[in-house]
Write a protein that binds this DNA or RNA. Structure first.
Lengths: 231, 231
DNA sequence: CTAGTTGTAGTCATATTGACCACGTCAGTG
DNA sequence: CACTGACGTGGTCAATATGACTACAACTAG
């Protein structure tokens, strides 16, 4: 029965799987734990949900603490909740995990919970041993990001606006670890209504040469029709 | 800091958005609340997570209580966690919501939390006023079910095995509220590797007449390549 | 038997996809 | 300054997928 006197108390935390593109490779933010348990081991950033805030508000607060930015410029969405009874050896903790991505974030400033925070390419992070069940969480988060590129416009959140089609292509190639044919990728993106809208101007000269690309901004759509399937 | 003495306590519940197909229409399980708050109002079934169980274990326990079945025959997956501070007027409650589907479930036996439980077609349920934030949750759950049919083999969980292609078509038509061309749907399903595997035997005679259909069982795949897109 | 319904196979015009090619634009270099 | 190599953009072309539709066999009810 719903009897306020006989429910077991839980601690509720949020953890963040925060991704960005650095040097054309998908990277995740990790913190080195300064406290027991798992002291010195890498972990996803996170913290307790306060008594008067929702999990999403708590996630945004953590995000601001970790990045040092007042308002987070990217995308934030809930991944899942992890609630195995033994996932934290100290007490019963339920963790609501969020996935965040943003373009090109700066080197992080360590939050109060973290002795030190840093970006790590996901292929390296996937082979690291992480605190708690965070290796499992990271794998789930990666799969979420990869699948969301297929049928949503989320890739545009990984780049700053305005961007070139090639910038988008770099996102897809980094997240899916594959290569696209330039012309085919372009045809697909431009053929998907509401994905991108052209804006005035062309890209700055790249050090590598080549014609300067037309610039675009995100379109109105949030889902892709048709989707861009992984091979 | 992670200090066990200064975290706020939460109650953690699971709620279930449980779907089945009844008379070719997608239906959701609701309970009429027997307690305050929202006494007498329809709600999604749910209950507290016990101190020694994960949210998923709690969801399966609730599922068994609501359906009266020992082991739930369908599919269960986490939807999301709802944590607005004022979502329950009594106390701070975080709810982990699961989506479940199963073929043809029987009339439910009321669980201990519910004065009465019943199936309601989703088009009716969507227009009802539900307790707590359950109307919002139901809308999210419906969208989850609808989108999952596009790129996973979940439709096979809505029917008992073995089934005919037509049975699958009925699932898609009920969930998406549209009609397929028989021949095209068949071609699509059979052309998707791992979706269904033929088995010996044909369907029982339908009262309506017609040739008896080849029977199939679910294939090995969990995701559909290529997907079956909504129009 | 006939009428009506369903399962299955096939046709056909159109759209999409993947693999290319061509050409113009640009930066850097000899 | 001409050349090179990379890049943006516009194409072609064959293979495949899609949507609309026809044809017919198999089956039940009456």
């Amino acid at each position: 029965m719903y009897d306020a006197t006989d429910y077991p108390p839980f601690a509720v935390t949020v953890d963040l799987a925060m991704f960005t593109l650095r040097a054309s490779s998908l990277s995740v933010l990790l913190v080195r734990r300064g406290e027991e348990p798992f002291r010195g081991m890498p972990a996803l950033p996170g913290g307790f949900v306060h008594a008067d805030e929702s999990a999403e508000v708590a996630a945004r607060r953590e995000l601001a603490e970790e990045t040092g930015l007042d308002s987070f410029p990217g995308h934030l969405e809930q991944l899942a909740t992890y609630s195995e009874p033994d996932r934290d050896p100290r007490m019963r903790v339920v963790s609501v995990v969020f996935v965040a991505f943003a373009p090109n974030l700066p080197e992080p400033s360590a939050g109060s919970d973290a002795a030190d925070a840093y970006w790590l390419p996901v292929e390296d992070a996937s082979h690291e041993s992480l605190a708690f069940d965070h290796a499992h969480i990271l794998a789930d988060a990666l799969e979420r990001v990869r699948s969301k590129l297929e049928y949503t416009t989320l890739a545009t959140h990984f780049v700053e606006s305005p961007f070139s089609i090639r910038d988008l292509q770099t996102v897809y190639e980094a997240v899916w670890d594959m290569t696209w044919d330039r012309a085919n990728f372009r045809r697909k993106v431009l053929g998907t209504r509401g994905f991108v809208e052209p804006v005035e101007g062309v890209a700055d000269a790249a050090s590598t040469g080549g014609r300067r690309a037309q610039l675009y901004r995100p379109g109105d759509a949030t889902t892709l029709h048709p989707p861009i399937p992984r091979p």
